[in-house]
Design a protein around this nucleic acid. Structure first.
Length: 216
DNA sequence: GCATTAACCACAG
DNA sequence: CTGTGGTTAATGC
């Protein structure tokens, strides 16, 4: 499983990468990167999904939910010896840990590789900007709708999927209480916009969901 | 004032 | 872990 960035590596560089990395399997819920722990690696998620989260001033905050293939923890791997946030497996995951100095040397020596990394970081940052605006200005139904659409369109590419987060985690993701998430989901079910049995979610009326997301 | 929104608490599956 | 109901505080019209 290669990323866009690793396509730009030569065979020699790929060998270097493989010889200085190790693959580890994680089960659902297990921590991959721990906030406040020392790290000398870059992590690359080969399979599965993960949540990027940290301990906020008052409670847990989920920053993003990502799926393979993607690098994990790049914002904290350079310039910081101590991890500034955590990453945990959402379902079973396969992660490749790459020696940081080896990785750094590849950035120095291969501009195209570095450029692809910058592209990914930019895409992520831009995406976060839009999310900040939503979080600050949308009401909870709009945020829940946005989250469901995001999971459906970006993570699963289906209108029918298993929500891997608990209600409480969804609350931590959009900055609200688990109760509010439950209530909004119940209301959307009553209005026949979605359907769910435990965590199996089906989007029945995507137009209505988009409208709720837009109107906030 | 009155309505809306959403948090916090409590209790039951 | 979830869903619901009661209560309360803040904000808007």
């Amino acid at each position: 499983m290669k990323s866009c960035a690793t396509h730009h590596l030569t065979d020699e560089e790929l060998n270097l990468l493989e010889n200085n990395s190790v693959t580890v399997l994680f089960k659902k819920g297990e921590p991959i990167i721990k906030q406040n722990a020392l790290s000398l690696n870059v992590a690359y998620l080969r399979c599965g999904m993960a949540k990027i989260h940290l301990q906020g001033p008052t409670r847990e905050k989920i920053l993003r939910v990502v799926k393979a293939p993607t690098f994990l923890g790049l914002p904290t791997s350079f310039g910081e010896k101590i991890n500034q946030f955590s990453v945990s497996a959402i379902n079973n995951a396969e992660v490749c840990f790459i020696d940081l100095s080896t990785f750094r040397n590849l950035i120095f020596s291969n501009g195209k590789f570095a450029y692809e990394l910058i592209l990914e970081l930019c895409r992520n940052e831009l995406n976060d900007y839009f999310r900040y605006a939503s979080l600050a200005q949308k009401q909870i139904p709009g945020l829940v709708a946005e989250t469901l659409l995001c999971f459906s369109e970006k993570l699963f590419n289906k209108t029918d999927f298993t929500m891997p987060l608990t209600r409480s985690e969804m609350g931590d993701l959009i900055g609200t209480s688990r109760e509010s998430v439950s209530r909004v989901l119940s209301e959307m079910t009553q209005d026949k916009i979605i359907k769910f049995d435990s965590n199996q979610i089906s989007i029945l009326n995507i137009e209505a969901l988009k409208k709720i997301s837009e109107k906030g």
